[in-house]
């Protein structure tokens, strides 16, 4: 029982990081219609920029802020310089998947080539440990959960109560109609890349804050669970992604304790297969049916 509660605690931390990433991933898809498989590489890039700062003596929190900015700038640039070109060229949906994969290959291996096949480690001051109700979490892990909650709440407020959020939701459900209502769709799309890119950067840095060390392929390894969480929750549905992240995060950490830590991603995938079999539209699935993702 203690093990289960302990694993649940780890699951909450993983789920928090996963929620930030999965929401950003799903937001990119839902509004811009691009499945950005270079997402994991942008996470790694931000984690690496954070590492450079951290190694130069900055605290991880400064690294987090700079990582978020870097993610925002890089994602927006990536869309403007590469993705938008192919969209304008009329490349089909699955052609865009190939484009994002090519970008992922280029990014990951450029980083690997320039930084080398090393384990990079963040220097983090020792944290105090808190125990309550059987959960054992460090202050750093609690702070990561806090960052995720703040990010999710901010995003929720923005989507729900601001004009920009309204414009985003409108563009997501029907870009042509949104445009004819006077919404500047290309500006909305730029902003989506900036916001989701910032979340991607935060996810990248918090992921490494939790695991302490990373390599050039850490982000693309994490992409597996991001995709699982996004599909389980219902792709294109931000609230579904949060739910999916919680399910996938807790499932994989509990499996790590009870079965085999190196197989935890396999359980995330098993969950994905089960969801695909019984409810392919995901838990919050209306958005996907509307966009023709599932028939």
């Amino acid at each position: 029982m203690d093990r289960l509660v302990g694993a649940f605690g780890f699951g909450l931390v993983t789920a928090s990081i996963l929620a930030i990433a999965a929401v950003a991933f799903t937001l990119q898809f839902g509004i811009t219609n691009i499945l950005n498989l270079a997402f994991g590489e942008i996470m790694t890039l931000c984690a690496y920029i954070g590492y450079l700062l951290n190694a130069a003596g900055a605290s991880v929190w400064l690294a987090l802020v700079v990582g978020a900015v870097a993610g925002a700038v890089f994602s927006a640039l990536l869309n403007r310089t590469i993705y938008a070109l192919f969209v304008r060229r009329g490349t089909a949906l699955w052609g865009m998947v190939i484009v994002t994969i090519a970008v992922a290959l280029i990014m990951q291996n450029t980083l690997l080539g320039l930084a080398g096949p090393h384990n990079f480690t963040y220097t983090i001051p020792p944290a105090t440990t808190f125990r309550f109700a059987g959960l054992i979490l460090t202050s750093l892990q609690l702070e990561i959960i806090g960052v995720a909650i703040v990010a999710m709440l901010t995003l929720h407020m923005m989507l729900r109560y601001t004009r920009l959020g309204k414009a985003m939701r409108a563009t997501a459900s029907d870009p042509a109609l949104a445009q004819s209502c006077g919404i500047n769709a290309s500006r909305v799309i730029d902003l989506v890349w900036i916001i989701s890119g910032a979340l991607c950067g935060i996810a990248g840095v918090t992921l490494v804050m939790n695991t302490v060390s990373f390599t050039a392929s850490t982000g693309s390894d994490f992409l597996v669970v991001i995709i699982a969480a996004a599909i389980v929750g219902g792709v294109g549905a931000p609230y579904g992604a949060m739910l999916g992240a919680l399910l996938v995060g807790v499932t994989s950490e509990v499996a790590a304790v009870y079965v085999n830590a190196s197989l935890k991603n396999v359980f995330a995938f098993a969950l994905l297969l089960v969801v695909l079999l019984i409810r392919p539209q995901g838990f919050i699935g209306r958005a996907r049916v509307a966009k023709g993702v599932v028939t």
């Binding site: 499945l35 498989l37 089909a92 949906l93 699955w94 865009m96 998947v97 390894d221 597996v224 995709i227 699982a228 599909i231 792709v235 190196s262 197989l263 991603n265 396999v266 995938f269 994905l272 297969l273 695909l276 079999l277 392919p280 966009k291 023709g292 993702v293 599932v294 028939t295």
Partner: peptide
């Protein structure tokens, strides 16, 4: 499982994830 009701780019993702997981299992 993967091809049944999913849009083409989603099918691609399911196959990709399956490939990464398969390496995990074999290793």
């Amino acid at each position: 499982i993967g091809l049944r009701r999913l849009r083409s780019d989603y099918q691609a993702m399911v196959f990709l994830v399956a490939a990464i997981i398969a390496t995990d299992v074999a290793t």
